[in-house]
Amino acid sequence: MVNRFVKSALSALSAAVLLSNVASAEEYLNGIKWEPPAIVTPGETDDQPPSDAVILFDGSDLNEWKNGENWDVRDGVAFSGKGQIVSKQEFGDCQLHIEWSAPLPVKGSGQGRGNSGVFLMGRYEIQVLDSYDNETYHDGQAGAIYKQTPPAVNVMRKPGEWNTYDIFWTAPRFAEDGSLESPAYITAVHNGVLILNHFELKGDTPYNRPPRYTKHGEKGPIALQDHGNPVRFRNIWVREFKPATGTQEREPFIKDGEKETPVGE
């Protein structure tokens, strides 16, 4: 009985010491007062937009697009038509979700098969192409930043099936004199697979000259290319991205109970 009592008392003492040590443990504090992150409700499924998304196409019409009247919308799907369509709204740093399908029956080969493109800020293209069992130059296949880099892997679904791009875009920044302060970066997921990881763009994405940066606004439109192939699109939405913000109210420090020690001392 005595031994049991002693063991119980020792256990309680050990727990008290442990709690005391935890309470007085050193803690690093960065001195930043963070603003609370905005509350966003996610879509009920992965393909549904979150509550703060800008809906560019929900299957009903192309009223959010310039030249949208020259593309057909049937059964909730937009078909590439005459000329590119350009979003009326403009975006800088953003998250873009878009679903697309290469046409059936299959026609053509190489760049002539299911060709279109998604242009960030109207000038930086991630390629849309039927790259299922279809050889072409690698920096021009589906998921490529056109003429700059191929995707890391080819995860193209069969023609007629739906592909999904989830694109995370960091816009370039320019100084007042037109010089480049920081380049554009893109991360892209194709059908749930990472294909571009924070790739640094060398500039715009033309066919007939090297890429280059030319000063433009902080925001630009999303454009979808018409390349003469009846590529289908659906479920297009964009989220403007704003990083967390806070105020550096004091220098970082270590807190140990009531004692505060600036980092570095």
Score class of each variant (00 low, 15 high):
Asp93Tyr: 07
Tyr132Lys: 13
Asn115Leu: 02
Tyr132Ile: 02
Ser131Glu: 08
Ser109Pro: 00
Asp133Leu: 12
Gly122Gln: 01
Ser109Asn: 04
Arg113Ala: 00
Val118Gly: 05
Val106Asn: 11
Phe119Ala: 08
Asp133Gln: 13
Val106Glu: 15
Gln111Tyr: 04
Ser109Met: 09
Gly112Asp: 15
Tyr132Ala: 11
Leu129Cys: 08
Gln127Arg: 11
Ser101Glu: 05
Ser101Val: 09
Gln111Pro: 15
Gly114Pro: 00
Glu99Cys: 10
Val128Thr: 03
Tyr132His: 12
Ser101Thr: 07
Glu99Leu: 12
Gln127Tyr: 04
Asp93Asn: 05
Val128Gly: 01
Leu104Met: 15
Gly112His: 01
Pro105Glu: 14
Gly110Tyr: 09
Asn115Thr: 01
Asp93Trp: 10
Cys94Gly: 10
Gly122Tyr: 01
Arg123Asn: 10
Leu104Val: 05
Lys107Phe: 06
Pro105Thr: 13
Gln95Val: 06
Ser131Trp: 10
Pro105Lys: 07
Pro105Ser: 10
His97Asn: 04
Gln111Trp: 04
Met121Leu: 06
Ala102Tyr: 00
Gly112Val: 09
Glu99Pro: 01
Ser116Pro: 00
Gln111Cys: 12
Glu125Phe: 02
Phe119Asp: 03
Ala102Trp: 00
Ser131Tyr: 14
Ile126Ser: 10
Gly108Cys: 05
Leu120Tyr: 03
Gly117Asn: 10
Asp93Phe: 12
Ser109Ile: 06
Tyr132Phe: 05
Val118Thr: 11
Ile126Arg: 06
Leu120Arg: 13
Gly110Met: 15
Gly108Ser: 08
Arg113Gly: 00
Glu125Met: 13
Asp93Arg: 15
Gly122Ser: 02
Val118Arg: 01
Gln111Ile: 14
Gly114Asp: 01
Trp100Ile: 02
Gly112Lys: 01
Asp130Phe: 14
Tyr132Met: 05
